[in-house]
């Protein structure tokens, strides 16, 4: 890890200074008050959205988590009963394990692949837009209903994977997508398969690094490896951090792919019963929205906790241009 996230000092007069002169500390004064006002103006739409669209439903779900709301009847207050029930709910515990395995395996894999390809593609490979588009295509499918069929086609008993492995002499292979021990693995692959989104964000981030930093460093005689570690990576850390948070939150909330591939059951035998899928089934299939709301708030606590840890850790490895 380089000592500074900024480019090495350059001979070129066009390169920005490495250290900004300290900004004059403004008095907590009219200037600050003006900045406050400007900030609130910029945030005005968000404030309105928060007050009107966001806070209401979120608060409602919090309140509902203390009720027996069934969707079809008015709720009755039940205190912390829903939260107490979570302790003894073995299917919930199973779904937590499934979700954690999924998050902690698929997120690093997906990000690593996305970053690696973004770096390869950023080297000015000829036909870059074509590759970028091709790699991005799978991500466009989203939660398409066709996914279930496509995935069986690849990971089924007679699917592509087994046919290829068969050519190498492997026989009697199981159908991966329908096996309780492997179904979760195929969903992890499905998530990694759609690495296009973080890849594009990485590419955008790479494009934002001023080329003059590299040119200056090249003139200084820094080798490609040194340039990579002292310019590319440090300047990309805010974007890596963003992708990490984004994929973390998304992975915890994974729903539609598991829902579609398992036909809404979380099967086989609950092996792909993700947390949000379980929550959805409790709320909409068992008419147990009070409990589902409690589940949602517990999930929020988990995600918020992990996000907070990441934010604290980010102070040690993320370098902003405005430090």
């Amino acid at each position: 890890m380089p000592s500074t996230g900024r480019a090495p000092t350059a001979v070129n007069e066009h390169a920005p200074p490495t250290h900004r002169p300290p900004r004059p500390r403004r008095k907590k004064s009219m200037l600050q008050r003006r900045e406050n006002r400007a900030a609130y103006l910029f945030l005005a739409p968000w404030f309105v959205g928060l007050a009107v669209v966001t806070i209401g439903p979120i608060t409602a779900s919090l309140v509902l988590s203390f009720t027996d709301y069934s969707l079809l009847e008015s709720p009755n207050w039940v205190g912390t009963e829903n939260y107490e029930r979570m302790l003894g709910d073995s299917r919930l515990h199973n779904s937590l394990i499934v979700t954690f395995v999924y998050v902690f395996v698929s997120v690093p894999l997906q990000l690593a692949l996305a970053l690696a390809l973004a770096l390869v593609l950023d080297r000015g490979v000829r036909g870059l837009p074509i590759y970028r588009s091709v790699y991005y295509l799978p991500s466009l499918l989203g939660g398409s209903v066709a996914i279930a069929i496509l995935w069986r086609l690849v990971f089924g008993t007679d699917g592509l994977i087994n046919q290829v492995l068969g050519m190498f002499g492997f026989e009697d292979l199981p159908g991966w997508v329908g096996h309780p021990d492997y179904a979760l693995g195929t969903l992890i692959v499905l998530n990694v398969w759609t690495f296009g989104s973080p890849m594009v964000i990485f590419l955008a981030g790479l494009r934002q690094i001023p080329t003059m930093y590299y040119e200056a460093a090249a003139v200084d005689g820094a080798g490609p490896l040194k340039r990579f570690f002292s310019i590319t990576i440090p300047l990309l850390t805010p974007i890596i951090f963003f992708n990490l948070i984004l994929q973390l939150i998304n992975a915890f909330q994974t729903f539609s792919q598991a829902f579609i591939v398992s036909g809404g059951t979380g099967g086989p035998a609950d092996s792909t019963m993700f947390y949000t899928l379980y929550l959805y089934l409790r709320g909409f299939s068992a008419f147990d929205m009070g409990y589902a709301s409690a589940l949602a708030w517990f999930l929020l606590l988990i995600i918020a906790g992990l996000t907070a840890v990441n934010f604290i850790a980010s102070k040690y490895w993320v370098h902003y241009g405005d430090d």
Binding site: A51, V52, G56, P57, A60, V63, L64, S74, P75, W77
Partner: peptide, 17 residues
């Protein structure tokens, strides 16, 4: 919208109404 918001909350808070 604010009225709607109040409505949601009252609907939730009401005990058996």
């Amino acid at each position: 919208a604010s009225a709607a918001l109040a409505l949601i909350l009252s609907a939730c808070g009401d005990d058996g109404d």
